[in-house]
């Protein structure tokens, strides 16, 4: 029986960064989807198809004072969220404690890839273990 692939949802306003991250995560056999706005994000999450992890860029339009991030962690508590943010953009909010991890947005994508793998290991150990045995780089 073929095991389900890890589905990563990248929330990023810059299309070229979305494409770059899609390419990098695809190398790990992840199914990668990208959205550019909060509206698209919640439409995708409500579509019914499973999303294993969300990589959420804090500088997405409409995320003033982290309001979209608050809605995300409040309404979809089962989906681990990894914040990908510039340090200056991080709000002083208690909702930050509800995310699975935080990674500084920088020119080095390896930190983000490494953190996604760790979160997957923590939240979906069976899936990642199988995925790793099945050829995943995680």
């Amino acid at each position: 029986m073929e095991r389900p692939k890890v589905r990563v949802l990248i929330v990023e306003p810059n299309p070229r960064m979305r494409d770059f991250l899609r390419r990098e995560f695809s190398k790990l056999n992840f199914l990668v989807e990208g959205v550019a706005s909060g509206e698209d994000l919640f439409l995708r999450l409500d579509s019914g198809e499973k999303v294993h992890v969300v990589v959420f860029a804090m500088d997405i339009p409409g995320n003033t004072e982290g309001v979209l991030q608050q809605q995300l962690v409040t309404n979809y508590p089962d989906i681990p969220v990894i914040l990908n943010a510039y340090l200056e953009d991080l709000p002083d909010s208690p909702f930050l404690r509800k995310v699975a991890a935080m990674v500084e947005k920088s020119g080095n994508p390896e930190n983000l890839i490494r953190m996604v793998s760790r979160v997957l290991e923590r939240y979906y150990p069976d899936l990642v273990e199988n995925g790793a045995q099945g050829g995943s780089n995680v």
Partner: peptide, 11 residues
Amino acid sequence: NPLTSVKMRLF
């Protein structure tokens, strides 16, 4: 933001 994208591509 685009500068970060440039940095990633350079990386």
